[in-house]
Design a binder for these strands. Sequence first.
DNA 1: TTTATCTGACGACAGTTGATGTCACTTTAC
DNA 2: GTAAAGTGACATCAACTGTCGTCAGATAAA
Lengths: 222, 222
Amino acid sequence: MENTQETRARDKQSGRTYGGESAEERLARQRRQFLDAGLELFGTVGYRATTVRMLCKQAGLTDRYFYKTFTDTEDLLAAVYTESLDQIQTEVIAAINASGNRQPTSGVIDAGLEAFFTAFENARVARVCWLEVLGVSPRIDALYTKRIEQFADLLLDLGKSVLADWRLPEAETRITGLALIGAISQSALHWLLEDYCSSRSSLISANSRLIHGLINILPKGS
Amino acid sequence: MENTQETRARDKQSGRTYGGESAEERLARQRRQFLDAGLELFGTVGYRATTVRMLCKQAGLTDRYFYKTFTDTEDLLAAVYTESLDQIQTEVIAAINASGNRQPTSGVIDAGLEAFFTAFENARVARVCWLEVLGVSPRIDALYTKRIEQFADLLLDLGKSVLADWRLPEAETRITGLALIGAISQSALHWLLEDYCSSRSSLISANSRLIHGLINILPKGS
DNA sequence: TTTATCTGACGACAGTTGATGTCACTTTAC
DNA sequence: GTAAAGTGACATCAACTGTCGTCAGATAAA
C-alpha cells in the first residue's frame, strides 16, 4: 500500500547527521534532556504543576521534540520514575553484594539500608518516587505497585538466602515483605517532608532493628 | 465604618429558615453533601480529575454553595481527609480500649490492627487517605505528615504503656513509630491496589508479627 | 399580599493547557 | 550551490477550568 516517499518522509527522523550528531544520537540526547528536566520539575514544583511548556523550557528544547519522544507528561513521569528506581535498585544490590560477609546478617542489612537512604538524600528523586508518582493514573499506580513488589522480593530473597528454611506461608510472606518496604519508605518519606532533620544513621538503625526483630521471631525449624 | 445593612446583607447567610431548615442547618447539610460528594469523587475518579462542576452535580447543589463553604477543591480534600482519619482514629482507639485485657499485648495490638484494616476496606476512604492526598500541595503534605505522626504517637503511647520502661533514644523512637505506621499503611495501600485479594486476617497477622518482633528485641531493663 | 431572601439553571468571562501549525533560518547531502 | 531536512521562536486552535453574574421562580416574614 504505497509505502513510498510520502510515508517514509513522515517517519520520525529520516536519519541525517546534524551538528555532528546522528539521528539516534540526537534522539537519545533529547530524551536525556527531557528526563533531566522531568526529574528537576517533578521533583520541585511537582508533577501536577508541571506543563509541557515548562519542561521544554527547562530542557532547552522546543515543544515538537517533546512529542517526538513522549506521548504525555505522564509518559515522561513513568520514564523518570523507572530510571530513578532502576539506579537505586542497582546501587542497593551492589552494596549488598559488596558487604560480602553474608553470615552476620546485620552487615548485609545495614549496607542495603545505607545505600537506600543515601540514594533518597536527593530530594528530587525522593519526591518523585514517594510523592508525585501516587494517585496519577491506574497505569502509574500499576508501575508503582510493580516496583514496590520488586523491592519486597529483593528483601525476601535476601532473607530466605540467610535463613536456611523459611516457614512462613506464602501469602503472609508477601505481605511481610511489602510491610517492611513500607516501613523503610515511610521513613524516607518523612525524612524528606521534614527536610532531612534526622540523621541517616538513626534511620538505618531504627529500620535495621525492625528487620532483626522480625527475623528473630520467625518460626524456626530443625 | 458603615457596618450597616449593606455589609450585613452581604454576610454569608443572613439567617432565615427555608424549607424547614435554619440557616445553620442548611449550611451544615450543604457541607455534608459536599463532603460525601468529595469522598465519592476523590475516591473513584481521583482528586486531579475532579472539578467543581462535578462535585456540585454529585452533591446536587449549585456552584455558589460550594464557594460558600469551601475555598478550593483542595480545601474540600483536606476536609474529607481530616474527617475520614478522625473517624478511623476514633474506631481504632475504641477497639483498643474495648479489648480491655491490656496485659497480653497481642490482644490489644490485633484489635487495633483489625479496626484499622476494617476501616480501609472502604476503597474510597483508602484511596483518598493513601493515594490522592499525596503530592497535592505543601499544605496537604503537612496535613498528611501531622496525621501520620498522630498515628505513630498513638502506637508509641500504647507501647510505652505496656512496656514499663522504654529505653530507646527519642530520635529512634519517633522513626520506629513512623516506620511501623509505614508498614501498616503500605499493607493497606497494596491491599487496595490489588483489589483486596488478600484476607484481612493475613494482613493483621503479618503486621502483628512485625510489631511483636520489635517489642521482643527492644533493649530491656531491670 | 407584598417584599426581601433563598434557590437552581444557565451563561459569560478570562486564563491555561495540550497539541499542532507556520515561517525564517541553519546545516547537511548531492 | 541548490534542494531537502533539521531547528527554534512564535502563533494558533479548541477544550477545559475556576469564578462570578443574571434571572425567573420558590419560600418565608412583614
